[in-house]
Amino acid sequence: MNFPEQKGVHELEAKANLLRRHVIRMIHAAGSGHPGGSLSAADIVTALFFKVMDHSPENVDSVDRDHFILSKGHAAPIYYAALAECGYFPVDELVTLRKLHSRLQGHPSRVKTKGVEMSTGSLGQGLSAANGLALALRMKGLDRRVYCLCGDGEMAEGQIWEAAMFASHYHLDNVICIVDRNGLQIDGRTEDVMSLEPLGDKWQAFGWNVLYMNGNDIGQVLDTLKAAKAHRGSPTVIVAKTVKGKGVSFMENNVGFHGKAPNDKEFEQAMKELGGSV
């Protein structure tokens, strides 16, 4: 097996904080971007890229590896931060996010960025691609997993439920969908904009194995992903309760930071809170 790094929980927590600092630095440098949903997903992404998934820059073009699709494409900064720390491209390049001629597009592009497996950004589409990839893996006899990270707001897209039906119908137990349930979307609370609850029950009704976790508790994330990986016969969804903007006090549960860059003062404050230097 080819795990890039084997880490204990404390080391992973430190890694998640490092990725959070990258996210803040990148978005501050770009002057635009989506910090809230990157920070809420930081612990999940860290667990996947630094512990759970078997992947490396050397086998980036191989189908015979674990796969990741970021359906909530606006969380590109946390994805890029993880890829850079895993060696897919230089960490120095992170601050080129959203700039002309940068490989780091505002939303992930598989054509532009090494390590990005699927282009996303138009919400609700990642899970369908994950299903297709999972089918291909099964046809090729490869015992690999496809992890698909979705936002909770995008659960309102009809295509998500088309994909949910498909994965269940074809028993795609190599698909693990993680819903970053931070409870906020651009226009406010998900339950005010478009009610999602009971979200887990909906997935269960579609034939999925449903697990719940605190998505900001790395120990729980690791345990839950382990259980998801062990489950056979049906696809697994993990409803991950998270805090939008997690780790930066003034961004936490603040819908204003869904898609806004911190100003210079906020940048300094955020970096301080995340234990880094400006």
Binding site: E117, M118, N131, A136, M139, K140
Partner: peptide, 25 residues
């Protein structure tokens, strides 16, 4: 074994097709 009916769900069919292509098909 290489044919998959997606039901009346064209959007998901296109996305699934994309995923299969990612997998080398």
């Amino acid at each position: 074994e290489r044919f998959f009916n997606c039901g009346i769900a064209e959007q998901n069919m296109m996305g699934t097709a994309a995923g299969l292509a990612l997998g080398g098909m």
